[in-house]
Amino acid sequence: MLKNLIRRFPVTSFFTLAFGLSWMLWMPYVLGDHGTNVEPDIHIPDIGGNGQLVGVLPGAYLGPLTAAFIVTAVSEGRSGLRHWKARLFRWRVGWGWFLGVLFGVPAAILIGTAALPAAWEEIRVPSAMIAIAFIPVVIMQFLTTATAEEPGWRDFALPRMQRRFGPVLGTCLLGLLWGCWHLPLFLTEWGGYPDVSWVQPVEFVASCIPLSLVMTWVFNRSGQSLPLVMLLHALINSTYSLVWPEMFPRLNDDKDTLHGLLIVTTIAAIVLIVVTRGRLGLDTTEERERPVEPARV
Protein backbone atom coordinates (compact mmCIF):
# COMPACT_ATOMS: atom_id res chain seq x y z
CA MET A 1 0.00 0.00 0.00
CA LEU A 2 2.69 2.49 1.06
CA LYS A 3 4.96 1.48 -1.83
CA ASN A 4 2.15 2.00 -4.32
CA LEU A 5 1.45 5.43 -2.85
CA ILE A 6 5.12 6.43 -3.17
CA ARG A 7 5.26 5.14 -6.76
CA ARG A 8 2.12 7.05 -7.66
CA PHE A 9 3.07 10.32 -5.97
CA PRO A 10 6.89 10.36 -5.72
CA VAL A 11 7.31 14.14 -5.42
CA THR A 12 4.68 14.52 -2.71
CA SER A 13 6.17 11.50 -0.92
CA PHE A 14 9.62 13.07 -1.06
CA PHE A 15 8.53 16.35 0.49
CA THR A 16 6.43 14.60 3.12
CA LEU A 17 9.38 12.46 4.17
CA ALA A 18 11.91 15.31 3.97
CA PHE A 19 9.81 17.57 6.19
CA GLY A 20 8.67 14.83 8.56
CA LEU A 21 12.07 13.26 9.17
CA SER A 22 13.91 16.56 9.61
CA TRP A 23 11.32 18.20 11.83
CA MET A 24 11.11 15.09 14.00
CA LEU A 25 14.85 15.14 14.67
CA TRP A 26 14.88 18.90 15.17
CA MET A 27 12.27 18.82 17.95
CA PRO A 28 14.78 18.32 20.80
CA TYR A 29 16.79 21.26 19.45
CA VAL A 30 13.66 23.42 19.18
CA LEU A 31 12.26 22.48 22.61
CA GLY A 32 15.55 22.29 24.51
CA ASP A 33 18.05 24.73 25.96
CA HIS A 34 19.19 26.01 22.55
CA GLY A 35 15.65 26.78 21.45
CA THR A 36 12.40 27.68 23.13
CA ASN A 37 13.49 26.05 26.42
CA VAL A 38 10.07 24.47 26.83
CA GLU A 39 11.92 21.37 28.00
CA PRO A 40 15.00 22.75 29.83
CA ASP A 41 16.15 19.22 30.66
CA ILE A 42 16.90 18.64 26.97
CA HIS A 43 20.53 19.70 26.57
CA ILE A 44 22.17 19.91 23.16
CA PRO A 45 25.99 19.75 23.44
CA ASP A 46 27.92 22.81 22.29
CA ILE A 47 30.50 22.26 19.56
CA GLY A 48 32.32 25.29 18.23
CA GLY A 49 30.43 27.64 20.52
CA ASN A 50 26.87 26.55 19.71
CA GLY A 51 24.65 23.50 19.39
CA GLN A 52 24.00 23.69 15.65
CA LEU A 53 26.29 20.82 14.68
CA VAL A 54 24.44 18.39 16.94
CA GLY A 55 21.04 20.06 16.79
CA VAL A 56 20.68 20.75 13.07
CA LEU A 57 22.83 18.40 11.01
CA PRO A 58 21.30 15.01 11.94
CA GLY A 59 17.85 16.27 10.94
CA ALA A 60 19.23 17.84 7.78
CA TYR A 61 20.90 14.59 6.71
CA LEU A 62 17.94 12.43 7.65
CA GLY A 63 15.48 14.67 5.75
CA PRO A 64 16.11 15.55 2.06
CA LEU A 65 18.99 13.12 1.49
CA THR A 66 17.28 10.09 3.03
CA ALA A 67 13.89 10.98 1.51
CA ALA A 68 15.40 11.21 -1.97
CA PHE A 69 17.11 7.84 -1.59
CA ILE A 70 14.01 6.07 -0.26
CA VAL A 71 11.57 7.49 -2.82
CA THR A 72 13.96 6.89 -5.73
CA ALA A 73 14.62 3.30 -4.63
CA VAL A 74 10.92 2.52 -4.20
CA SER A 75 9.58 4.32 -7.28
CA GLU A 76 12.38 3.67 -9.80
CA GLY A 77 14.59 0.92 -8.37
CA ARG A 78 18.27 0.46 -9.15
CA SER A 79 18.02 2.26 -12.47
CA GLY A 80 16.66 5.37 -10.79
CA LEU A 81 19.32 5.23 -8.08
CA ARG A 82 22.04 5.05 -10.74
CA HIS A 83 20.78 8.24 -12.40
CA TRP A 84 20.37 9.97 -9.04
CA LYS A 85 23.92 8.99 -8.09
CA ALA A 86 25.28 10.04 -11.51
CA ARG A 87 24.25 13.67 -10.97
CA LEU A 88 25.60 13.54 -7.44
CA PHE A 89 29.11 12.77 -8.74
CA ARG A 90 29.01 14.76 -11.99
CA TRP A 91 32.29 16.62 -11.52
CA ARG A 92 33.23 16.77 -15.20
CA VAL A 93 32.30 20.39 -15.79
CA GLY A 94 34.50 23.05 -17.37
CA TRP A 95 36.85 24.77 -14.94
CA GLY A 96 35.30 28.06 -15.92
CA TRP A 97 32.13 27.05 -14.10
CA PHE A 98 33.93 26.25 -10.86
CA LEU A 99 36.04 29.42 -11.03
CA GLY A 100 32.97 31.49 -11.84
CA VAL A 101 31.07 30.13 -8.85
CA LEU A 102 34.11 30.27 -6.54
CA PHE A 103 34.78 33.95 -7.19
CA GLY A 104 31.40 35.13 -8.45
CA VAL A 105 29.30 34.09 -5.44
CA PRO A 106 31.33 35.94 -2.76
CA ALA A 107 31.73 38.95 -5.06
CA ALA A 108 27.98 39.15 -5.72
CA ILE A 109 27.18 38.90 -2.00
CA LEU A 110 29.69 41.56 -0.97
CA ILE A 111 28.78 43.94 -3.80
CA GLY A 112 25.09 43.43 -3.16
CA THR A 113 25.57 44.31 0.52
CA ALA A 114 26.59 47.78 -0.65
CA ALA A 115 22.90 48.37 -1.40
CA LEU A 116 22.30 48.50 2.36
CA PRO A 117 22.87 52.08 3.60
CA ALA A 118 24.30 50.96 6.94
CA ALA A 119 27.02 48.99 5.15
CA TRP A 120 28.85 52.22 4.37
CA GLU A 121 29.19 53.23 8.01
CA GLU A 122 32.21 50.97 8.39
CA ILE A 123 33.86 48.62 5.89
CA ARG A 124 36.94 46.60 6.75
CA VAL A 125 39.31 44.51 4.68
CA PRO A 126 39.19 40.87 5.85
CA SER A 127 42.23 39.76 7.80
CA ALA A 128 44.74 37.21 6.57
CA MET A 129 43.28 34.66 8.97
CA ILE A 130 39.88 34.99 7.31
CA ALA A 131 41.45 34.37 3.91
CA ILE A 132 43.30 31.31 5.22
CA ALA A 133 40.22 29.89 6.89
CA PHE A 134 37.86 30.50 3.95
CA ILE A 135 38.58 27.39 1.87
CA PRO A 136 38.49 24.98 4.86
CA VAL A 137 35.14 26.50 5.89
CA VAL A 138 33.82 26.09 2.33
CA ILE A 139 34.88 22.44 2.35
CA MET A 140 33.16 21.91 5.71
CA GLN A 141 29.96 23.56 4.43
CA PHE A 142 30.15 21.45 1.28
CA LEU A 143 30.38 18.22 3.28
CA THR A 144 27.72 19.19 5.81
CA THR A 145 24.89 21.53 4.76
CA ALA A 146 25.25 21.18 0.99
CA THR A 147 25.64 17.39 1.10
CA ALA A 148 22.68 17.03 3.45
CA GLU A 149 20.31 19.16 1.37
CA GLU A 150 21.13 19.29 -2.34
CA PRO A 151 20.85 15.55 -3.22
CA GLY A 152 17.21 15.99 -2.26
CA TRP A 153 16.19 19.48 -3.39
CA ARG A 154 18.17 19.78 -6.61
CA ASP A 155 19.07 16.17 -7.53
CA PHE A 156 15.71 14.53 -6.86
CA ALA A 157 13.02 17.23 -6.81
CA LEU A 158 14.20 19.81 -9.34
CA PRO A 159 14.30 17.63 -12.50
CA ARG A 160 10.81 16.35 -11.79
CA MET A 161 9.29 19.69 -10.86
CA GLN A 162 10.62 21.62 -13.81
CA ARG A 163 9.39 18.93 -16.17
CA ARG A 164 5.97 19.02 -14.55
CA PHE A 165 5.55 22.78 -14.09
CA GLY A 166 8.28 24.32 -16.24
CA PRO A 167 11.61 25.78 -15.08
CA VAL A 168 10.33 29.01 -13.51
CA LEU A 169 7.13 27.83 -11.80
CA GLY A 170 8.65 24.49 -10.81
CA THR A 171 11.65 26.23 -9.26
CA CYS A 172 9.49 28.79 -7.45
CA LEU A 173 7.46 25.99 -5.87
CA LEU A 174 10.64 24.17 -4.91
CA GLY A 175 12.16 27.33 -3.45
CA LEU A 176 9.04 27.99 -1.40
CA LEU A 177 9.07 24.47 0.05
CA TRP A 178 12.82 24.57 0.60
CA GLY A 179 12.47 27.78 2.58
CA CYS A 180 9.52 26.49 4.64
CA TRP A 181 11.53 23.37 5.54
CA HIS A 182 13.81 25.63 7.62
CA LEU A 183 11.00 27.30 9.60
CA PRO A 184 11.30 25.32 12.90
CA LEU A 185 14.92 26.44 13.13
CA PHE A 186 13.81 30.04 13.65
CA LEU A 187 12.74 28.89 17.12
CA THR A 188 16.39 28.08 17.90
CA GLU A 189 19.73 29.85 18.09
CA TRP A 190 20.14 29.04 14.38
CA GLY A 191 17.46 31.61 13.56
CA GLY A 192 18.40 34.07 16.32
CA TYR A 193 15.68 33.04 18.78
CA PRO A 194 14.41 34.67 20.98
CA ASP A 195 15.38 37.93 19.24
CA VAL A 196 13.54 37.06 16.04
CA SER A 197 10.46 38.69 14.53
CA TRP A 198 7.98 37.21 12.06
CA VAL A 199 9.62 39.26 9.31
CA GLN A 200 12.84 37.23 9.34
CA PRO A 201 11.42 33.78 8.50
CA VAL A 202 9.14 35.37 5.89
CA GLU A 203 12.09 37.15 4.30
CA PHE A 204 14.18 34.00 4.46
CA VAL A 205 11.53 31.94 2.65
CA ALA A 206 11.11 34.73 0.11
CA SER A 207 14.86 34.80 -0.58
CA CYS A 208 14.92 31.03 -1.15
CA ILE A 209 12.74 31.48 -4.25
CA PRO A 210 15.06 33.73 -6.33
CA LEU A 211 18.07 31.86 -4.97
CA SER A 212 16.54 28.63 -6.25
CA LEU A 213 16.05 30.22 -9.69
CA VAL A 214 19.78 31.00 -9.81
CA MET A 215 20.65 27.49 -8.67
CA THR A 216 18.35 25.99 -11.31
CA TRP A 217 20.15 27.93 -14.03
CA VAL A 218 23.55 26.70 -12.77
CA PHE A 219 22.23 23.13 -12.51
CA ASN A 220 20.76 23.13 -16.01
CA ARG A 221 23.57 24.95 -17.81
CA SER A 222 26.29 22.79 -16.23
CA GLY A 223 24.73 19.57 -17.50
CA GLN A 224 23.01 18.96 -14.15
CA SER A 225 26.21 18.93 -12.10
CA LEU A 226 25.16 18.63 -8.47
CA PRO A 227 28.69 19.24 -7.06
CA LEU A 228 28.68 22.66 -8.72
CA VAL A 229 25.34 23.55 -7.10
CA MET A 230 26.60 22.21 -3.78
CA LEU A 231 29.69 24.42 -4.10
CA LEU A 232 27.43 27.42 -4.74
CA HIS A 233 25.40 26.60 -1.62
CA ALA A 234 28.54 26.13 0.47
CA LEU A 235 30.02 29.43 -0.74
CA ILE A 236 26.90 31.38 0.18
CA ASN A 237 26.94 29.99 3.73
CA SER A 238 30.69 30.44 4.12
CA THR A 239 30.72 34.02 2.84
CA TYR A 240 27.91 35.10 5.14
CA SER A 241 29.25 33.27 8.19
CA LEU A 242 32.95 34.12 7.84
CA VAL A 243 33.75 37.00 5.48
CA TRP A 244 30.61 39.13 5.73
CA PRO A 245 30.75 39.88 9.52
CA GLU A 246 34.41 40.79 9.21
CA MET A 247 33.84 43.26 6.37
CA PHE A 248 30.61 44.83 7.67
CA PRO A 249 30.87 44.91 11.49
CA ARG A 250 28.07 47.49 11.85
CA LEU A 251 25.46 45.31 10.16
CA ASN A 252 23.15 42.93 11.99
CA ASP A 253 24.08 39.33 11.17
CA ASP A 254 20.54 37.96 11.50
CA LYS A 255 18.59 40.69 9.72
CA ASP A 256 20.90 42.43 7.24
CA THR A 257 22.17 39.16 5.76
CA LEU A 258 18.58 38.40 4.72
CA HIS A 259 18.13 41.88 3.23
CA GLY A 260 21.31 41.52 1.19
CA LEU A 261 20.57 37.96 0.07
CA LEU A 262 17.07 38.89 -1.09
CA ILE A 263 18.34 41.89 -3.07
CA VAL A 264 21.20 40.03 -4.78
CA THR A 265 19.25 36.89 -5.64
CA THR A 266 16.19 38.79 -6.88
CA ILE A 267 18.26 40.90 -9.28
CA ALA A 268 20.15 37.81 -10.51
CA ALA A 269 16.94 35.80 -10.94
CA ILE A 270 15.19 38.53 -12.92
CA VAL A 271 18.19 38.89 -15.24
CA LEU A 272 18.38 35.13 -15.81
CA ILE A 273 14.64 34.80 -16.51
CA VAL A 274 14.78 37.63 -19.05
CA VAL A 275 17.99 36.50 -20.74
CA THR A 276 16.96 32.83 -20.98
CA ARG A 277 13.33 33.70 -21.80
CA GLY A 278 12.18 31.66 -18.86
CA ARG A 279 14.05 28.49 -19.79
CA LEU A 280 16.76 28.90 -17.11
CA GLY A 281 19.16 26.84 -19.19
CA LEU A 282 16.88 23.80 -19.49
CA ASP A 283 17.94 21.80 -22.55
CA THR A 284 14.87 20.63 -24.43
CA THR A 285 16.70 19.39 -27.53
CA GLU A 286 19.08 16.88 -25.94
CA GLU A 287 18.51 14.20 -23.33
CA ARG A 288 21.20 14.62 -20.70
CA GLU A 289 19.68 11.94 -18.52
CA ARG A 290 17.09 9.22 -18.61
CA PRO A 291 13.71 10.90 -19.09
CA VAL A 292 11.69 11.32 -15.94
CA GLU A 293 7.95 11.14 -16.35
CA PRO A 294 6.10 14.18 -15.07
CA ALA A 295 5.16 13.16 -11.54
CA ARG A 296 1.80 13.81 -10.01
CA VAL A 297 2.14 15.93 -6.91
Results as ranks from 00 to 15, higher is better:
5 L>R: 14
8 R>G: 15
10 P>R: 12
11 V>W: 07
11 V>I: 15
15 F>C: 11
17 L>A: 13
17 L>G: 14
19 F>W: 14
20 G>E: 09
20 G>M: 13
22 S>M: 13
23 W>F: 11
25 L>I: 12
28 P>Y: 03
28 P>T: 05
31 L>Q: 08
34 H>D: 13
36 T>V: 14
36 T>W: 10
39 E>R: 12
40 P>I: 08
40 P>W: 08
55 G>F: 01
56 V>P: 07
56 V>A: 13
58 P>C: 11
64 P>N: 12
67 A>S: 15
68 A>E: 11
69 F>W: 14
69 F>Y: 14
70 I>Q: 07
73 A>R: 15
74 V>D: 07
80 G>K: 03
85 K>Y: 13
87 R>Q: 14
89 F>V: 15
90 R>Y: 04
91 W>P: 06
91 W>A: 12
94 G>R: 15
99 L>I: 14
100 G>E: 07
100 G>T: 04
101 V>N: 04
102 L>D: 03
103 F>P: 06
104 G>N: 03
104 G>A: 04
105 V>E: 10
109 I>M: 05
114 A>S: 13
116 L>D: 08
120 W>C: 07
120 W>V: 06
121 E>D: 14
121 E>R: 14
126 P>R: 06
127 S>M: 04
127 S>D: 14
130 I>M: 08
135 I>T: 11
137 V>E: 12
138 V>R: 02
143 L>P: 05
146 A>L: 06
146 A>W: 00
161 M>Q: 00
163 R>S: 14
166 G>C: 04
171 T>Q: 00
173 L>F: 03
173 L>V: 10
175 G>E: 00
179 G>I: 00
186 F>L: 05
188 T>P: 08
193 Y>Q: 06
194 P>E: 11
194 P>K: 09
198 W>P: 06
198 W>L: 15
199 V>W: 12
201 P>A: 09
201 P>W: 01
206 A>M: 07
209 I>Q: 00
211 L>C: 02
215 M>H: 00
218 V>Q: 03
218 V>K: 01
220 N>G: 06
222 S>W: 01
222 S>R: 05
223 G>D: 09
223 G>A: 09
226 L>D: 09
229 V>L: 08
234 A>N: 10
237 N>I: 02
240 Y>I: 01
241 S>W: 02
246 E>I: 02
246 E>P: 02
250 R>A: 13
252 N>Q: 13
253 D>A: 13
254 D>L: 08
258 L>F: 00
261 L>D: 05
262 L>D: 04
263 I>W: 02
267 I>D: 04
268 A>I: 00
268 A>Y: 00
268 A>H: 00
270 I>M: 05
272 L>I: 01
273 I>P: 02
275 V>H: 04
276 T>M: 07
277 R>P: 09
278 G>V: 00
283 D>Q: 10
284 T>W: 02
284 T>E: 13
288 R>P: 02
294 P>T: 02
295 A>G: 07
